[in-house]
């Protein structure tokens, strides 16, 4: 069984150690509840950024509908746990499947569009999802859904985040992922190399939407109340900033981007204008001087001293 290759194993050991440290910091109350909440948010944001990166960065399909899929996962999740007493993990998975299914339905027609047209169409789709939710009285309409049980713990977030990263990393480093990269690089050449471009665009979009749905479930169960206003396209822009800052097409970048953006947001919580001005300036300067983002197409495991620790495996990965 080659289920866990050497590198994955090293990563897993490292991650579990990291988890243990953070968990101790939380249970010993060394971290204030403000930063505890932020750790949870960072984890959720990593899932969202990495899944958006799969669509926008790896497959090169500029989507701005992520918040809509997050909303679907969130609402399906809270309805199942709150109204039907469904166990939390089952509700999360159901939310992910619902969001993924919707992603599939939306992706099939819209992914024919290119570049900026796709961007604006997915933005519109995300808004339509939100407006529809706003008009469903069963889930509280515009006032929001109240009385959500607080199921989301740091452990859930951490291990689901780990699973997301593992999933996306292995996907990208397979023939399926290579097909997505080929589409990003040159769609016509990809097609002439035997890549069914529609199939892989929709596949990446569906997977991305499904993980956004799971993240939405985690997000919703961290609060007592969620409203459709939490899932506007401004929210998508947040994840887009993470992905662009970290680097389109880099998982390391998405992690770093989620960290930086969440920290800035938390640190400047009382000065929301400055926060947004900083993002704006950062986005513009990045496009001027480093359009590939902090990490470009690189992964941390590919660089310098770390390369020695994570020796190159049998494939093009890591």
């Amino acid at each position: 069984m080659n289920l866990l290759r050497k590198n994955d194993l090293k990563m897993l050991v490292f991650s579990v150690a990291l988890f243990a440290v953070l968990q101790v910091l939380i249970s010993e109350r060394i971290l204030s509840s403000f930063w505890q909440l932020n750790l949870v948010i960072i984890g959720i944001n990593i899932i969202l950024a990495a899944s958006l990166n799969l669509i926008n960065g790896y497959t090169g399909q500029f989507s701005l509908g992520h918040a809509g899929f997050m909303a679907v996962g969130a609402y399906v999740g809270v309805v199942l746990t709150t109204n039907f007493g469904v166990p939390f993990p089952v509700a999360l998975v159901a939310g992910g499947i619902a969001a993924g299914f919707l992603g599939f339905l939306i992706g099939l027609p819209t992914l024919r569009l290119r570049g900026d047209y796709l961007a604006i169409a997915t933005l519109g789709m995300g808004e339509i999802i939100r407006i529809v939710i706003m008009n469903i009285q069963y889930v509280g309409g515009a006032a929001g859904f109240k009385g959500i049980p607080h199921h989301t713990t740091f452990a859930w977030v951490f291990f689901l985040m780990l699973f997301t990263l593992f999933f996306i990393k292995n996907f990208v480093n397979s023939a399926h992922g290579r097909a997505c990269l080929a589409i990003r690089e040159n769609e016509i050449a990809a097609e002439s190399m035997g890549v069914n471009t529609t199939r892989y665009k929709v596949m990446a979009f569906t997977i991305g939407a499904a993980f956004a749905g799971i993240a939405g479930g985690l997000f919703a169960h961290s609060f007592y109340l969620i409203t459709p206003a939490s899932f506007t396209f401004m929210q998508t822009f947040n994840y887009l900033i993470m992905v662009v800052m970290g680097g389109l097409g880099s998982i390391t970048g998405s992690i770093a981007g989620a960290f930086v953006v969440t920290f800035i947001s938390a640190a400047l919580a009382s000065w929301p204008e400055f926060r947004m001005i900083i993002y704006a300036v950062a986005l513009i300067l990045l496009m001027f001087y480093r359009p590939q983002g902090l990490f470009g197409y690189m992964e941390l495991t590919n660089m310098g001293f770390l390369r020695k620790i994570f020796k190159k495996g049998g494939d093009a990965n890591a």
Binding site: A175, R178, A179, L181, A182, A190, M193, G194, V195, A316
Partner: peptide, 9 residues
């Protein structure tokens, strides 16, 4: 190498 690998799709 990746360029060639994609052709095995």
């Amino acid at each position: 190498l990746e360029n060639v690998k994609i052709a095995f799709q």
